[in-house]
Design a protein around this nucleic acid. Structure first.
Lengths: 228, 228
DNA sequence: CCAATAGTGTCTTTTAGACAATATCAA
DNA sequence: TTGATATTGTCTAAAAGACACTATTGG
């Protein structure tokens, strides 16, 4: 130990995609293969050292962009990890400020990313480098809590969407089915959605009304904090 | 700007004490007067650089001990602040990992602390150094949110307490009165309290049963995180 | 017409809030 | 006995969950 300390910013990036077997939508995360010691060959969260003139959230967004070619639809600080035992074999002490993000992976699909980047089903990860397994677990816990009382599910959808589509996001994140009529009532009484006069047609059934989110309401209430 | 980066750990320390005018219990925080530039003379959160061999929470607990001679009854990470504009006049860039803590100030009272430390009513602070006013505001928001759905209020009380005492803590934190019978029912159905067979006597009224918290339940559910 | 999903309405259970009524102590 | 707070109970309103029923489309 030489007492030197470095500060890194990493990001847990979530997207919804069909599960390879079940075809049902599930959460995925992109990971980066480590090409040097320690933990060479293992998968790790995308990230890197904080730029000298860069804010923490800016650094997370940059990493996200470099890793996935996407912009985050939602970005929030998760936690700062700074235990002295995070990388016991290395001389350098690293504190990591970790963010979590939601993206919409439509355009840029798995192929567009580099050879050392790969998307994984979030609930079926291999053992990751450092304490990154714990970090992803914690990010999943936060996401699943937060989707129940905030509007972050919107980050996975486009400008307008049907209630069934929104419900599908909730079901995929929470891993359980939700009663359509009760879900509708809950969303309606929350007052966070605005009905448009457009409909989604094409299915062999009654067309569904399209809704959009009330733009005057933040995706998430973080109190006095409004980073970026 | 020379690009160097330092990492500091600060702590927002909350205690309950009577308001100087109303005598009603309110939240107080200890602040430290800055004895050098920038912001010389202003009040700031206690804290300092992260020790080389020290975990983040350990550093926060040490600062708390040095500032108040107390041990935290509850300690949780608040947020990592790392904007590039936090101290524009200085050459050094500082990222602060901030914790918040609850203490019981019975023994060590205001007098015991150093000359450059002073306790303030949390809702009546002067303008603080750096972005510390925003930080305290955010910590207050977190505390007031969390007291409603967790057991952290227990950190302000002793081993056993009456429901009126517990309600008093909630009322002081939330700044509103709570209906005694409904508060009782809510606490009872939560199953987090255990009735003892002891009573608090001495008042000119019916003695109140003493309760204690179920030790098998954490003060706060932080999911997969169990720092320390 | 039928299959499928959208959307409405109803009933029950749970939870929160207001508040009346009774219990028990110290003075 | 009285004043004070503890404790129990009751009523109502709001929210959550289960589920029946009607509406509208494409085929």
């Amino acid at each position: 130990m030489d007492g030197s300390l470095s500060l890194a910013v990493s990001t847990v990036i979530f997207a919804l995609r069909p599960h390879p077997r079940t075809r049902l939508p599930v959460l995925w995360v992109p990971l980066v293969r480590r090409i040097r010691q320690p933990h060479q060959g293992r998968w790790a969260l995308p990230g890197g050292p904080l730029g000298a003139e860069e804010g923490l959230a800016t650094s997370a967004a940059r990493t996200l962009q470099e890793t996935t070619r996407l912009s985050p639809r939602y970005l929030e600080q998760l936690y700062a990890f700074g235990g002295t035992d995070r990388a016991p074999t290395t001389a350098e002490r690293t504190v990591s400020v970790v963010y979590w993000a939601l993206v919409r992976p439509e355009e840029a699909d798995a192929g567009a990313v580099g050879v050392n980047v790969q998307w994984f089903v979030a609930d079926e990860l291999p053992e990751l480098a450092f304490d990154h397994s714990l970090i992803v677990e914690y990010a999943l816990w936060r996401l699943r809590n937060k989707v129940e009382y905030s509007r972050i599910a919107a980050a996975f959808l486009g400008e307008s969407f049907t209630l069934a589509e929104l419900r599908g996001v909730h079901e995929a994140v929470l891993q359980r089915s939700l009663e359509p009529s009760n879900f509708r009532r809950q969303i309606e009484t929350s007052g966070r959605l605005v009905a448009t006069d457009a409909y989604r047609t094409g299915g062999r059934h009654r067309p569904a009304r399209l809704y959009r989110h009330d733009r005057s309401i933040q995706l998430s209430d973080n109190g006095p904090l409004t980073e970026r």
